[in-house]
């Protein structure tokens, strides 16, 4: 969901809370960033060989890339591997970054490729599909219609909640959950997501719908038992 869409959503149906707050972005961080050197200057310096400038870029995005890896891979060890490999690769390939996309989008693309490659290796001997499976429409029909009250966060501790969310995401094929994380969590546009994953915009939209429906259903089932 784009920020603009989120804004519309807040205005029109009085959705509680803002996505920016939900995403854990501290307004102070944003303020600090504006006082920091502009990203384009850091990229230029890093390309010229200033490793300090590259580390500053890493400082800005390491947490987000770690979270993306954790959500995608489902465990901290693989998330750390994806984090390290992504930034090492980004450093190696920085001269090839043409700055026609956001630096963060470029990083996300590297991290997703690393993650999917790792998942492919891990699952090569399993029957579980990594790519999008052909979905039976029946799977998309919601079966759980209970409201989530009290809020799940109030019901469970942070570690339990994290495990529950990661387990639920892991029940989806990687091709589906990646689209969900890129579009709804990282807030990449449909076009950016399509480019990162080598899909058409239509395929991104179709996968996003399926991912949302299936994740919602999965969480509803688990929360019912929690």
């Amino acid at each position: 969901m784009s920020s603009a869409a989120a804004e519309r959503l807040n205005l029109e149906l009085a959705v509680p809370g803002s996505r920016r707050v939900a995403a854990g972005l501290n307004p102070m961080d944003l303020q600090q960033q504006t006082l920091e050197r502009p990203e384009s200057a850091l990229i230029a310096e890093a390309k010229a060989g200033n490793s300090g400038a590259f580390e500053e870029l890493v400082n800005r995005y390491e947490r987000k890339i770690y979270r993306l890896g954790l959500r995608l891979m489902g465990n901290p060890q693989d998330a750390e591997d994806v984090l390290q490999e992504s930034f090492l690769k980004a450093y190696e390939h920085l001269p090839e970054f043409r700055e026609d996309s956001r630096f963060y989008t470029w990083l996300v693309r590297i991290a997703v490729n690393e993650g999917l490659m790792k998942l492919r290796k891990q699952r090569s001997d399993k029957s579980e599909p990594l790519e999008d499976a052909v979905d039976d429409d029946g799977q998309l029909m919601p079966r759980e219609f209970r409201d989530w009250r009290p809020n799940p966060e109030q019901l469970l501790g942070q570690e339990q909640m994290q495990a529950l969310l990661l387990n639920a995401a892991n029940t989806l094929p990687a091709g589906l959950r990646t689209v969900f994380f890129l579009r709804d969590v990282e807030e990449l546009s449909t076009e950016e997501t399509a480019e990162a994953l080598g899909l058409t915009a239509g395929a991104v939209k179709a996968r996003l719908f399926r991912a949302r429906m299936r994740l919602r259903e999965q969480l509803a089932q688990v929360l019912k038992r929690a």
Partner: peptide, 23 residues
């Protein structure tokens, strides 16, 4: 209405950065 609300809640839960801290 519940599917509408809980779909939004699903997205919000995964966006909750504090649930996925980097050690």
């Amino acid at each position: 209405q519940i599917v509408f609300d809980t779909t939004r809640k699903t997205i919000e839960l995964y966006c909750e950065g504090e649930l996925f801290p980097m050690p």
